[in-house]
């Protein structure tokens, strides 16, 4: 997803892809849902969604096919997703994604459907028969990892915060070192009275 953000997708998707990569790292699981019929076997109903025509000509005039049977072996792409596709089948995929999300929400599991994760998954051959894949991130954490997102989240997320703590903590620790087995500087801290010392008096 980070590679896609920097190298492939348009500028307006760069931040969303980078942010969602963080969310995926914070997730416990990801579910990939595709529908191979979106490309391979259109609904052939003439609904009008793909090209605004009362037949399926828009798709069949643009996708390699033999007498209306689409060549599903042709996986050549000149765009990120090879279209046009059957939009009614894609709409069906929406119901599958919706049901998965509904179940997650019923079980109090945080979930988020993503183009970014789906695309990265598809490019790594998950749901490889499907031209369109949606990635559903699932997370069980103290806090919904997919909401309340600060600016530049790909650099300001909690993993980066923890990492920066590791980075700086070592330096501070080295400077403030002391022979802990024989000496406790905590007792002599400025402006602080030690209850043990008082007891000794």
């Amino acid at each position: 997803m980070e590679r896609l953000a920097h190298q492939e997708v348009p500028a307006r998707l760069k931040k969303p892809f980078l942010y969602e990569a963080v969310m995926l790292r914070e997730s416990d699981a990801v579910v990939f849902l595709g529908n191979f019929r979106v490309r391979n076997s259109p609904m052939d109903a003439g609904c009008g969604l793909c090209g605004g025509e009362p037949d399926c000509s828009f798709v069949y005039e643009r996708v390699p096919n033999v007498d209306g049977i689409i060549d599903h072996t042709n996986r050549k792409r000149t765009t990120t997703i090879s279209g046009p596709l059957c939009m009614l089948r894609a709409h069906d995929l929406g119901y599958a994604v919706g049901s998965a999300l509904w179940l997650a929400s019923t079980l109090f599991v945080d979930a988020k459907p993503c183009y970014s994760a789906g695309l990265a998954g598809r490019n790594l051959d998950f749901c490889m028969k499907s031209e369109v894949v949606v990635g559903i991130l699932l997370g069980v954490a103290a806090k919904n990892p997919y909401a309340d997102i600060p600016t530049d989240y790909h650099l300001t997320n909690v993993t980066d915060q923890v990492d920066s703590l590791r980075k700086i903590s070592i330096i501070t620790r080295q400077i403030a070192n002391h022979p802990y087995q024989t000496y406790d500087p905590g007792k002599k801290a400025p402006g602080k009275s030690d209850p043990h010392e008082k007891e000794e008096e």
Binding site: G46, G48, L49, G52, H91, V97, S99
Partner: peptide
């Protein structure tokens, strides 16, 4: 317009609409 919808459509809007209907 086809038998029941206008087009062409944006695929991602179509999927989101499916989620909402679901």
């Amino acid at each position: 317009v086809g038998i029941g919808a206008y087009g062409p459509s944006c695929l991602w809007k179509i999927i989101d609409f499916g989620i909402a209907a679901d």
